[in-house]
Design a protein around this nucleic acid. Structure first.
Length: 196
DNA sequence: AAGCGTCACAACCGCTCGGCG
DNA sequence: TCGCCGAGCGGTTGTGACGCT
């Protein structure tokens, strides 16, 4: 069994208080990010290091854009998800001011449903039925993406084959002249940048 | 007004990866 | 080369807010 990350020591759980936020912010601004494991002790926080990191990254970090996602952001998330699958950190890396947790939540609560409503399978971005999908929003119609880059992902967690046909199949289809993504209109520079 | 169901989001959990001795 | 440890990631859960009956 794996040992818990915060064994023994009693740590707070649940929502962060204002004081905790202040302590964490002050400490990180002073000492920089990193050494999350030892940070709680140094900052005088009764929190697990993981929890501190998450709180900072997702909520306290400066330059975070909070609030609703714009249409362009939604569009980009859908495209990137078609390309990258559930690699939220990579997707978030392309959205300045957004965090992986935020993108993940937004996907699960809004975009997934939206795609389903449009008749697009959110898992593989393929049109499920011959249904008129009113893709009013610019280029939501990224068909047959099939998460090609997931092939590189050795974890292969959700290849529950039913909904994920082999990539080779779709690649040999009529759209096989597009990029590996099946997203002809995409010109995304996917070099991985440092998180902002 | 109360009860119930659903939604949205913050936070947690457990796994994997990569660096280091 | 191997094992340990910390950091990071993605899936899942908890809970408060909101809407409907």
């Amino acid at each position: 069994m794996r040992k818990p990350c915060c064994e023994k020591k009693k740590t707070n759980k649940g929502a962060w208080s204002k004081q905790e936020d202040e302590k964490l912010t002050e400490f990180v601004e002073k000492n920089g990010e990193g050494s999350w494991r030892s940070l709680p002790l140094a900052a005088g926080l009764l929190r697990c290091g993981k929890s501190c990191r998450l709180r900072w990254v997702n909520y306290l970090r400066p330059n975070l854009k909070r609030g609703n996602f714009g249409e362009d952001e939604e569009d980009l998330i859908v495209k990137l998800h078609a390309l990258l699958g559930n690699r939220w950190s990579l997707i978030a890396g392309r959205l300045p001011g957004r965090t992986d947790n935020e993108v993940k939540n937004y996907w699960n609560t809004h975009l997934r449903r939206k795609l389903i409503q449009m008749g697009v399978d959110p898992n593989n971005h393929r049109i499920g039925h011959t249904q008129n999908i009113g893709l009013s929003k610019s280029s939501f119609g990224s068909r047959k993406a099939n998460h090609p880059c997931k092939a590189a992902n050795s974890q292969g967690d959700n290849d529950s084959d039913d909904h994920q046909k082999p990539f080779t199949d779709s690649a040999s289809g009529p759209e096989s002249n597009t990029s590996c993504s099946g997203l002809p209109d995409l010109n995304l520079d996917l070099t991985i940048g440092l998180p902002s």
